[in-house]
């Protein structure tokens, strides 16, 4: 139940490393060393201090569900990929990331469910989209 390949987001110099890393199986976040702030969505300047000394850091790729909803109709979304489970995942590094859950029974998802990132290919080889799947708690 995964829509592939997805439409390609518009990749810009500001975001290309993010999408390309995703194509290689890595979720990147940005971090401001001055503020010690790890943030999402990626942007060229720190949203706390507006400094441009921000670095890319590899995320662990795990987190927990902060909020979720199962939606039965979404404009231009393929019917076979519905219902869509939209979610905020609170990443292990801290930021809450708006994303989607897949590979799960929507009714089995709860706030606090542990999830891990996986990547959905797009029509472009060097761009993939991070989504999340439930994992077993250890």
């Amino acid at each position: 139940m995964s829509w592939e390949p997805r439409p390609v987001p518009s990749v810009t110099p500001e975001t290309a490393p993010y999408w390309e890393a995703a194509a290689d199986g890595t979720l990147l976040l940005r971090r401001c060393p001055d503020c010690e702030l790890t943030f999402y969505y990626p942007r060229a300047r720190c949203p706390d201090c507006l400094g441009d000394d921000v670095e890319w850091v590899e995320a662990d790729g795990t987190g927990t569900v902060y909020a979720h909803t199962s939606t039965e109709t979404v404009a231009a979304w393929p019917e076979e990929d519905l219902p869509l489970v939209l979610a905020y995942v609170e990443l292990t590094e801290g930021p809450r990331m708006l994303t989607a859950l897949q590979g799960c029974d929507p009714d089995a998802i709860e706030i606090g469910t542990s999830v891990a990132v996986t990547f959905v290919p797009t029509a472009t080889d060097d761009v993939s989209i991070p989504v999340f799947e439930p994992i077993d708690d250890d």
Partner: peptide, 15 residues
């Protein structure tokens, strides 16, 4: 890209 239309965004808040 995640289908985050108006309705599900408010549903997340309700949840």
């Amino acid at each position: 890209i995640y289908g985050a239309e108006t309705l599900p965004q408010y549903a997340l808040a309700a949840r």
